[in-house]
């Protein structure tokens, strides 16, 4: 039953976004993060979101798949919003009741943190939706390869990621079988308090660990038999090649940063908006 788990939530369609070189996509993610962090005006986020929708359209991934990434944060986001709203006191007081005070600075900060988180998570999820874990690992390895000069174990790290990706489904399946074997021996995994439950997991975790170590040993032998001797002198089946589209993508993302900088310096709409809100509330600046 664990066989159906798809790793890294890759969404298999053919699109420009899927065909981009993984290295390019990693660079794009960095550019995008830069853009998200240099935004100083709330309204410019409207532009970032528009750009996000444009990227989603280019990737042919349904929007609700991209938005699914926000779901795990459904508790975190409101919490972050409220914390920032109530804790940060700067600018003008918008609202005050007993010990609760809302300021313009707090509202701004609260909106920023939520919008930034959403923008970052959807951007990163768009990367994993359009890139298989394998090519992501590959892209990372090549992108970081200059670090080999300072003895950073780039190849080893990538190899570890690959093996982890390969064995996660196998281990999940094995965990399922072990659980069943112990249930059949009357193991009680459900009742009792948290300590009792933790103790009940021992008969499952120990075989899982022991088997994993044995697997690791056998895998090492198999890899040695296949002439594995580290990253030195290795060639690759898949050669990553940059295309024109990669250049275009980088240019578009660089333009995004430029536009963000220009927009918020030319049209500081936020300030007017703040004045407007204050005016509506009957407060003088």
């Amino acid at each position: 039953m664990f066989k159906d788990i798809t790793l890294g939530q890759y969404f298999p369609v053919d699109s420009v976004a899927h065909r981009l070189d993984p290295r390019t996509k990693l660079v794009l993610l960095i550019l995008y993060i830069v853009a998200v962090f240099i935004v100083k005006d709330i309204w410019v986020f409207g532009f970032i979101i528009a750009f996000m929708l444009f990227m989603t359209a280019m990737s042919k991934v349904p929007l609700n798949y991209v938005l699914k990434a926000i779901k795990p944060m459904k508790l975190l986001l409101p919490l972050m919003f409220l914390l920032n709203l109530f804790m940060i006191k700067s600018g003008h007081i918008l609202f005050s009741w007993k010990f609760i005070t809302v300021t313009t600075g707090g509202l701004r900060q609260a909106l920023f943190i939520v919008l930034r988180l959403i923008a970052l998570v959807t951007g990163a999820s768009l990367l994993t939706l359009t890139t298989t874990p394998v090519s992501l690992t590959e892209g990372l390895e090549r992108l970081l390869s200059p670090l080999k000069a300072v003895k950073f174990p780039v190849h080893e790290l990538a190899m570890m990621m690959t093996i982890a990706l390969r064995f996660i489904p196998t281990l999940l399946e094995e965990a399922d079988k072990i659980m069943k074997a112990q249930l059949a021996r009357g193991a009680d995994l459900e009742s009792g308090n948290i300590f009792k439950k933790a103790k009940a997991m021992i008969p499952i975790l120990i075989p899982l660990f022991v088997n994993s170590f044995r697997r690791a040993e056998e895998l090492a032998l198999a890899m040695e038999s296949r002439c594995y001797h580290g990253g030195e002198g290795r060639t690759r089946l898949k050669v990553l090649k940059f295309h024109m589209r990669d250049l275009w993508a980088v240019l578009i993302f660089a333009a995004l940063i430029a536009v963000v900088v220009i927009l918020q310096n030319t049209f500081p709409i936020d300030r007017y908006a703040a004045d407007l809100i204050l005016g509506l509330l009957g407060k003088k600046q």
Partner: peptide
């Protein structure tokens, strides 16, 4: 080797 699972290294 004997165990088919423990000699395949990559995901494709």
């Amino acid at each position: 080797f004997q165990n088919p699972d423990n000699q395949i290294v990559t995901t494709v």
